[in-house]
Nucleic acid binder design. Structure first.
Lengths: 132, 132
DNA sequence: GTGTCTGCAAACCATTTGCATCGGT
DNA sequence: ACCGATGCAAATGGTTTGCAGACAC
């Protein structure tokens, strides 16, 4: 049986704000946004709620190869692309590429359960900066 | 023109040890190994050399979704699988899965340059632990 | 001798945690 | 009233950096 959770104002605002965004913010970025509505919220609370919401499957936690964790309000399956220069992340509305898990399984003593993919590239502004 | 680099004993030992391993060690794991040969080496030196060697293309730096960076003495193209429980990483001697970069490009204003893939699963020992 | 590299220790930065208090139920 | 959640601040842990002395060339 699952632990019961309460609907606090903090949790609700965090979820609402995240779902209203398509920028895949870091915990800190979201913290600053939420603070405009709840000026006394603490960063620890943001972290705790993001973990809880993602455990409940209401949001998605993106552990891409960048330096900071990012969060996505959409839980529908889609891909992501990350800018190799500024680490910005965008959605890519195509299904995550499939891979031959069965073939992979033939080559390892690990139990193969999945594949994580991440497109990489240059975001519009880093792309322009580079052209100069 | 590239900055010149010197062949120090530290750099050589780090490279040799890493290439002799197939365990994809973290900087800290490698540090402890290297210390058996060079007891006074510092962790900072290990980090600096790993970065330098990977800039030179002599080793590969793995930024998988785990918590720590890992390093691979082999630069030949191959895949990796990561244990979701203990973060251990192993080689997978199959070519990295291809993806339709051109199709991805049609859906984003990023300049798509590549795809990073990472198999995930359970390593033999975490798999056994789970069976109990 | 020049300029890179090292060891050491302190700094950094994202994330986590302990604790007293608050507030949903 | 109970117990989960919060705010605060300190702790953690991986990685980076400043600096004075050491060493490769």
């Amino acid at each position: 049986m699952n632990k019961s959770t309460r609907t606090t104002r903090q949790r609700q605002v965090i979820l609402d704000q995240l779902c209203a965004l398509s920028t895949h913010p870091t915990a800190d970025e979201l913290y600053h946004l939420v603070r405009q509505e709840l000026p006394h919220i603490s960063l620890g609370t943001v972290y705790r709620n993001l973990e809880l919401l993602s455990d409940q499957g209401l949001i998605q936690c993106l552990e891409l190869s960048g330096h900071q964790r990012r969060y996505d309000g959409s839980t529908a399956p889609h891909s992501h692309i990350r800018c190799t220069v500024c680490d910005r992340v965008a959605d890519l509305p195509i299904a995550p590429p499939q891979a031959p898990l069965a073939e992979a399984q033939r080559h390892t003593d690990f139990l193969v359960t999945g594949l994580k993919t991440e497109f990489v590239g240059l975001c519009p502004s880093c792309r322009c900066a580079k052209d100069k």
